[in-house]
């Protein structure tokens, strides 16, 4: 039930994709998103597709797992496809009553679906292959120039790390409390909205208490280890760009360049 929530799920592994520097992965993902929107026409999607398939194949993550991320968005994707199909003017393909489906409509709809699916799978690949800790580390380093304008980059990253770290813990805790209250006959599943909201009190009160207790304990534990913010702090895992990152960058630039070059070729 609660355990089914996957929030930026990470699948550990030791593939070139996993070994890449998180900063490079974030930058490439951002570049990938931009390219997806710059691309025009089926031909220019081809190199991007090759890029995505290569990345997924290298990451050894099962395509079925990758596609699972698309599932919750099927409705949006279908809606986009249908709207594009019906409202794109052009050469008539089929005509049913007042609705005309044009050749251009089908083409645009297909490209739209392709774009959304690629967008989702590509970004999911980032969270699937990068641990939350590495991800926040990468974000912190990428954002560190902002320190010059007094953005508390380290504090924000630390907050994110802690939040991410405690999501599974709190889900587990909520599950336990829920079971304990169910064992006393609490009913979370039936009744009107108001009844259900009221039924949450026996879950939320203990959950908040435990979250505050944990926060307190964590703060003390951090103080005990002399945590005093980001200044002068060194890292156990230094972020270094390696050969893998260089190869990935070259590979990406080449394929994306091809994608842009193919923009002008229309079919």
């Amino acid at each position: 039930m609660l355990k089914d929530i996957t929030l930026g799920q990470y699948f550990p592994g030791n593939t070139p994709v996993h070994r890449m520097d998180p900063r490079m992965k974030i930058l490439l993902t951002m570049g990938y998103i931009v390219i997806l929107f710059v691309a025009k026409g089926i031909l220019s999607y081809l190199p991007i597709m090759i890029w995505l398939i290569t990345a997924v194949a290298l990451s050894r993550i099962k395509p079925s797992v990758i596609l699972r991320g698309v599932k919750p968005l099927i409705f949006v994707i279908t809606l986009t496809a249908v709207l594009n199909m019906f409202y794109t003017p052009g050469t008539e393909l089929v005509k049913i009553w007042v609705i005309t489906i044009t050749y251009q409509g089908v083409y645009t709809a297909f490209l739209m679906v392709l774009r959304i699916v690629m967008l989702i799978t590509g970004t999911f690949l980032l969270t699937y292959t990068t641990s939350p800790i590495a991800l926040t580390d990468g974000i912190e380093r990428l954002m560190s120039p902002l320190k010059a304008i007094r953005v508390p980059v380290h504090e924000l990253a630390m907050m994110m790390t802690i939040a991410l770290r405690f999501i599974p813990t709190l889900i587990e805790e909520a599950d336990k409390i829920m079971n304990a209250q169910k064992a006393r006959g609490a009913d979370f599943e039936t009744g009107s909205i108001i009844r259900r909201a009221k039924a949450l009190i026996p879950l939320l009160v203990p959950l908040f208490i435990s979250a505050f207790r944990r926060a307190d304990e964590l703060a003390i534990a951090m103080e005990c280890r002399c945590y005093r913010g980001g200044e002068g702090r060194t890292r156990l895992r230094q972020l270094n760009y390696g050969p893998v990152d260089v190869y990935a960058l070259i590979f990406s630039v080449l394929l994306w360049g091809a994608a842009i070059a193919c923009r002008s070729i229309a079919i």
Partner: peptide, 16 residues
């Protein structure tokens, strides 16, 4: 659940 009463580990965490 009323007939088979279950006391979980650390049951004091469920007081509310």
């Amino acid at each position: 659940r009323f007939r088979v009463g279950l006391v979980f580990q650390y049951p004091e965490h469920q007081l509310f």
